[in-house]
Computed example of a mutant assay.
Amino acid sequence: MSAKARMDVPEGLNEEFYQISSDILQSFNKFRPPLDIFIFKEDVGRVAPYYKVGERLSKERIDMLAELVKEGLIFVSRKDHPVYVKHIAYQLDLVLVDRNLKEREIADIFLEALTMRLGEFFDQPVPVVKEKVWSDLMVLTEYLWNDPYRIKALARRLHKEHSLARHSVNCGILGLNMFIHQKSDSFAKGEVTRNHFNRLTAGLFFHDLGMTKIPIFIREKPKPLTTDERSKIDKHPMLGFEMLGKLDLKYKEIEACVMEHHERLTGKGYPQKKSGRDISSIGRLIAAVDSYCAMITKRPNAEAIDPKKAAALIAQDKGYDPEITRGIQSWALTLK
């Protein structure tokens, strides 16, 4: 079969199907793709089954499939979106080449991928695992660098159940949402550098790195902590800071997130008891976001607070930067 120009998706078809590219096809298991595959029959203007999960493709059908993909005739059903999300999550850079994914679908994939990668990293915080997370975070920054306001779809998908990885993803996404909103003019003028954006992103997602050194039975204890347990928890910013050098993460943006996310404008935070403008702008950002994201998820020792109520509560606390808490309040009011 000779290759021809890639077919445009027929009007209405892309509401029910993804038109897959060669890059996506190559990411599938060659003989047993993870989801049903359909072919567009040009003579009748409809899709028809080509492969069903559970079957095994022959060498001939594999070769034919590759040619059909080049011609733009191969689709997968949007009903299989959950399967597609889990598949792409393992090869996140594919979201940058799949032009048929919708913004909300890409947001689902990022949430799945980053939560998975951070969970792996927090279970094993060593350089080789960190590199995998870093790679995925750079896919995110590439995606947002081309259009920063894509963060809005992600910010509508924050996790509702707490875990260290889920909390970190929530903080990373909401932190970026607040930063992009605050710096909209700077983005438009090209005043935000790519390196700064990359490192800020990593810092927001890695701010709780030191918690990996706290025993899980303390982190997830359903009852009030003892004085000794509280003391251990309070050491996590310093523990995280000590880990940065071993992980090749010694950047000022990441250091600020790790060291300052529990500092308060009133001087009543920790570990350095900084106050006011002694706390960096990044530190003030992650401090408010970290507390807010903890409040809106169901934790072992507390129920989730309604996002709008949590935003109002944090805005009343003089320990947080009022410009940031106003931004969180404005964002929360947009939620349904």
Rank of each mutant, 00 (worst) to 15 (best):
D123A: 14
D123I: 00
P125G: 01
V126C: 04
V128Q: 08
V129A: 05
K130C: 02
K132P: 01
V133Y: 01
W134K: 11
W134E: 11
W134V: 09
S135I: 01
S135L: 02
S135H: 10
S135K: 11
S135G: 04
D136W: 00
L137S: 03
M138D: 08
M138F: 07
M138V: 03
V139T: 11
L140I: 03
L140W: 03
E142R: 10
Y143L: 02
Y143H: 12
L144C: 01
N146K: 14
D147R: 09
D147M: 06
D147K: 11
R150H: 06
A153R: 00
L154T: 01
A155W: 01
A155F: 02
R156H: 14
R156Y: 12
R157S: 05
L158T: 08
H159K: 13
S163K: 07
L164S: 08
L164N: 12
A165Q: 10
R166I: 00
S168V: 03
V169F: 12
V169H: 12
C171I: 08
I173L: 02
L176K: 01
L176A: 03
N177M: 08
M178N: 02
H181L: 09
Q182F: 15
K183Q: 13
S184F: 04
S184R: 15
D185Y: 09
K189H: 10
G190A: 12
G190D: 11
E191M: 13
E191H: 11
T193L: 07
R194S: 07
R194E: 13
N195K: 11
H196L: 08
H196D: 15
F197Y: 06
F197M: 06
N198D: 15
R199Q: 08
L200P: 07
L200Y: 03
T201W: 02
G203V: 05
L204F: 06
L204G: 05
F206N: 01
F206C: 02
D208Y: 06
G210C: 12
T212F: 07
K213L: 15
P215H: 10
I216N: 14
I216Y: 13
F217V: 11
I218T: 08
E220S: 13
L225T: 05
T226Q: 09
T227V: 10
T227S: 13
D228K: 13
E229V: 06
R230Y: 11
S231T: 14
S231G: 15
K232V: 14
K232G: 05
I233N: 10
I233F: 14
D234K: 15
